[in-house]
Every structure is written in C-alpha cells, then in structure tokens.
Nucleic acid binder design. Structure first.
Lengths: 337, 337
DNA sequence: CTTATTATTTAGATCGTTCTAAATCCGTAA
DNA sequence: TTACGGATTTAGAACGATCTAAATAATAAG
C-alpha cells in the first residue's frame, strides 16, 4: 500500500535529464532553459514528487525549520505569541518546531539539544527563569542563531523582541490619575520573576511622575483564587486605594471576584486595571480595562528578526519593542472627585 | 566563531574505533562491550557531539518528528490540546512540528506537503471544515500515518481521539433538570460546522430523555459581542427559558454580559451553562458552570495513539474518547420550583 | 591445541539532495 | 571553417548517519 518515495533520480530518468537539472528546476533556479523546465515540471507533477528537505539540508545546511521554546502553553499570552511566530514563519515557508520548557532549566537545555540534533536553522527562545546569562554565547559557539523574546538574559548580545511593560504600567497609571485616583495599589505576583521586577519598577516610576501615591503592594499567588483571597488585604491597605493595578489579567479577574465577595463592586466602588488584555478581559464582569501588550505582534516581530538574522548573520543586534495600548472598559469606570 | 559540526567519524577517530561502533553507542545498542562504550561515551561528551537526527532519518526513515495541524491557535481549547500533545511527545523524545491551518483547506494541504517534505513520522490533524473525506486514504497512500483529533472525516478509517459532546451536553441538561428547570434554551453558533451539528444533536437528544422542553434555539456569531447581543432574543423566546445552555464558554460569557445589560442577573434570574470549561470559566461573574472537555487529555490521547500507530502500523484502528465532567459553579445556582 | 560458538567490531554501500567543476551546445565573429 | 563566449547541462563527490554482511576477538568445548 505504502508507495516508495519518488526521488530526484526517478524524475530525472523519466524526464530524460540529469538529477542535477531536476534539482535546479525544483529550486526554481533561473539557470535552466524554459522548455526543459516545463518538461521537468510536468513529470514532477505526474509522479507527485515531494522535495525532501531533510536530505537537502544535509548538503546545503538549511532546514527551513526553526525552533520555538516557550515556558508555558496554557497561558494565552504565550500561545498568542506562538501564533504570531507561526504565522510569520509559515508565510516564509518555514516550519516551526514547538517545545514547552515549563520554565524548567533542565528541560530547556534538553530541548535545545534536541533542536540542535534536528538541525534547526535558528531558535526563538523565551528563556526560562534562571537561565544562565552565558547561554546566548554558548549558542553562538554552536552556530545556532538565537532571538530572545518576552524575556532576556545576557547583556544585549542577541536580537530581542518584547513588550514594554514599563510603558504599559505607565499608561494604566496615567489613565487612573486622569480619573482622579490618588491612592493606587498594585497587586503583584509573589514569585520573584523578572516579570515581577519589571512591572513593580514600572509602577514606582509611573507613580513618581504623578501626583498619585503608591497605596501599597499586595502579593498573591498567580491564580484567580490567590487573587480573590488577596482582596481583603487590598482593602485593608493603609493607603485605602481607590484603584488597583494588577500584575496581569488573571489576577485582576480574580481580584474582582474577591472584591465583590467582600461587598465592593469593581468599577463602581473601586477601579481595577489588568495587564496583558487577554481575550478574557472582555468577558469578565464588568469588562476589564487592561493594557494590551499584543503578544501576537511580538511573536511576529521575533519571527522577522530571526528571518533577518538568517539572511545576514553578521548584521548588528536589533531590538524590537511593541508599544502597548490601553483598552478602556468598565472596570475602571469610576472617577474620584 | 562558528564551530564545525562534530561527526560520528571524528568521534570514531579520537576514540580509536569505527564509525559504526560509535553509532551503536549513540543509539545505546546492547551490542557494544562495556569498556568500549565507556571509552566512546567519554569522547562523545568531550567533543560535545550532537546526534544529527536528520541525517539518520535519511538512512533509517524515522525522524522522531511529528506534525500537528490545528485550525486555530487563539482558542485556548486548541492550545490546551496542543499542550497535551507536546507534553506526551516530548516524554517520548519526539519533536512537534506545529502549524495552523486557520480552517482553510488550501493552507491545510500546503502544510501537509510541507510536513511530507520534512519527513515527519506521522501527523495529528484536526481537519479543517470541509476537508475531503478521501484525505485519510490519500495520506495512507503517501505512507503518512494519521491520527485525527477533535474532528473527523472519512468513515472510521484512522485512529481518532476526541471529546464526547453528546455526553457533555447531556451532563449539562441533566444538571439543569435536576435543579427543576423545565424550559431550556440553546445558544448556538451560526456557522454550520460539524461541532454545531454535534452539540445541537446532543441537545435534542438530551432534552428528549427528560421531562424538560426545548425552549428554543438562538444563533449568534462566535464572539462575546455576538452572544451579548443575542440576550434579547433569548429572553424573547416563546418558551421563556429559565436556563440557557451555550455552544461554548465564550458565548456563555458573552450571554451573561448581555443578560445583565438587560437587567437579568445570570445565576439568580436565569441559569447559564457553558461548554468546554476553558480557564476563563472561573473568571466570569458569576463563575460559570461548564462542562470540562479536557482538551489537554485529548491531546495526550492523540499523541499516544500516534505513538502506538508508529510502533505497529497494522494495528486495528482505535478510538479514544475522553469523558467530559461537569464543573458546577455559580452561574447555574438557581433552582426552579 | 583445534574447532565451534558467541560476542564485538568494522568496511563499504546507501539514503536523497546539492555542490563543484567540467562538459556540451549554440550562435556569432574572425 | 574555426574559435570563442555565454547559456545549459551533467558526472561524481560530498553531507552525516545507518544498514548489511562479513571479519575479528573471545570463550567454551572436545
């Protein structure tokens, strides 16, 4: 039942030309004469020839394959990111090898070895927490082009595509201040990740630039229950915040549930703003004001950077930061006198 | 800067054995003597040898690579599915080539050709709407093992892993009936997909088995706005439903927003139940009762089926259907006398 | 000390493509 | 006619692994 694979050689035989010529036709080289090209193309189609890219790579060292490593496949932030990468790569007729590091360093390096063994042309990596800053250098020695994305290790040694959370937080704070809020709290995640550092940093800086005050920082587990439970703490804050900015949308949604359980109506009694603008932000009640980070566009940007790097390996390092935008909905409706 | 690739030959030379022996060591064959194995393994590590799987495939026809085609990378149902596949494959030291067909037939066949060219060992496919029922047969002729998942074309000709929506709908309806609901409406998607057919079918059947009545079927666009707008239609239904079962969680969440705008409190004035139990179901207000379809487990099942098929190509066709489970939350709280 | 047996090791062909360098073809200028 | 240059085509050696079949080493038996 299983047909044997059709090879260049067989096509060549049928078409009455050499293997080399068929190869040229397959690769659309301008070197072959029009009439031979047509003749060969017909045979190609007749025999249902499939170009074996693996075999080709062996000779010419380009697999048209790239690897993507994300720390998580459940968080839609990363899957949207992935979607952007896939789309862009696919337009470029490249294939994506996908792997999930689960934020685990051991897995991450296993995956890198696997990718190396499969001969990927390059890698887009969201480095797992705690990744050795030397990694980019090591990969350079391997001859494996790397674009980092969303997170970064090492000092500006590779191309990078990411989000600007500093700016994002600033947008959110600015919006709240405009609506008269002067006491703004931040609901953070408890894990000490670089994401946490960046957003907290952004928060203090943004607050500093306004007449508002930091009403306090509360930590919660990264889950909706964690956030819901932290509602009490938020309300007990000395600064008695009239608005809470949250680490991300999941925490914001959880917090809204918690606040409501505590008898406070988000969007009426207290403003809540999320970060990331995941699809769920529209579906909470009230619909959540959030800062869109556009992970899909970041993914596309990362893909473009990698494509460029593959074309010109010695181009200078480039960074691509996608500007966030504020999506105003009802959870931040209230204005404070 | 870029190191040349270390080959079996070089390792062999340094270790003072033949290429073939090194190959055996790399593949952990029991044929080699202990002391040679150790000697070779040391050299392997010293030189940082990387097994070139592509080259190996050329000879032995196994790339340890499988392709996954999903119709969508934004819907978390599919990404959780993907996550299950990736995890299982990775445990098996296989790599996943990912592609998104966007439910487009042309793209889908392009992707299949690409995968074929890359020499994947097999494919897990969620067929795009309208896929030719002959496709599985064609793939069999190509010698490309196929597992279908979540959707299916052709008549039971390939392995299949999926969800049981009939059962899922039945669980939901049963739950509502238990709480005294007798007029139950269904909020459907307007696109004529097989998913729609299955769920509607399940709905009529489930209703038929109880003392409840079909209060009417409303169609909406597959988006939260679409669902929100359909709230009026739902309320205007002749059957005056006390409960609404929705095509999926996104519609359910949208509907809840719409109902509230219309002055009806979901979970108090009218029960709403979703399907799929996406992560967002916990984050809506009130938290949504939904039927968990466990896409991640389905993905894992699909991966297992494919692994099995690769091992024994002639095993009989197998189906794996993951049982749904009802997640009761607050959107279906109310009981009707 | 042979010889039979089993355990290891290996040379060399092979997978399907692309590259290099050289061969052939063809029209034109001398 | 002969030679020359550009346009096409091609033979044959890579690429890095694995397979086959056979060679060699080690062990046991007679």
């Amino acid at each position: 039942m299983k047909q044997r694979k059709v090879t260049l050689g067989e096509v060549a035989q049928v078409a009455g030309v050499s293997r080399a010529t068929v190869s040229l036709v397959v690769r659309k080289s301008p070197l072959v004469a029009d009439h031979t090209r047509q003749k060969v193309e017909r045979v190609l189609a007749d025999l249902d020839y499939v170009h074996d890219i693996g075999a080709a790579r062996l000779r010419n060292n380009s697999s048209r394959t790239i690897g993507v490593i994300v720390p998580n496949l459940v968080n839609s932030f990363f899957t949207e990111f992935l979607s952007g990468v896939e789309q862009m790569m696919s337009e470029d007729d490249r294939v994506v090898l996908l792997a999930n590091s689960d934020d685990d360093l051991t897995r991450q390096s296993q995956i890198l070895q696997r990718f190396r063994g499969h001969g990927v042309d390059g890698v887009i990596l969201c480095p797992a927490e705690g990744t050795d800053p030397q990694l980019p250098m090591r990969m350079r020695q391997w001859g494996l082009p790397l674009v980092q994305s969303l997170r970064e290790v090492g000092d500006n040694v590779t191309d990078y595509a990411g989000a600007d959370y500093i700016k994002g937080v600033q947008l959110a704070v600015g919006h709240l201040v405009e609506h008269g809020h002067r006491q703004i709290a931040f609901l953070s995640v408890s894990a000490r990740t670089s994401a946490r550092v960046e957003r907290l940093e952004g928060f203090s800086r943004a607050i500093a630039g306004t007449e508002a005050q930091n009403a306090g920082i509360v930590e919660a587990e990264l889950s909706w229950e964690g956030a819901a439970q932290s509602a009490a703490k938020v309300l007990a804050l000395r600064g008695t915040p009239s608005a809470v900015l949250c680490f991300n949308d999941v925490l914001a949604a959880g917090l809204m549930l918690g606040l409501r359980r505590a008898g406070r109506e988000p969007g009426r009694d207290i403003a809540v703003v999320g970060l990331d603008d995941l699809p769920l932000a529209e579906l909470t009640f009230p619909p959540m004001t959030s800062v869109a980070m556009c992970p899909e566009r970041i993914g596309a940007a990362a893909a473009r950077l990698l494509a460029r790097r593959l074309e010109s390996p010695d181009a200078p390092v480039e960074r691509s930061v996608v500007a966030p935008s504020l999506m105003i909905r009802e959870s931040s409706n209230l204005s404070v006198s």
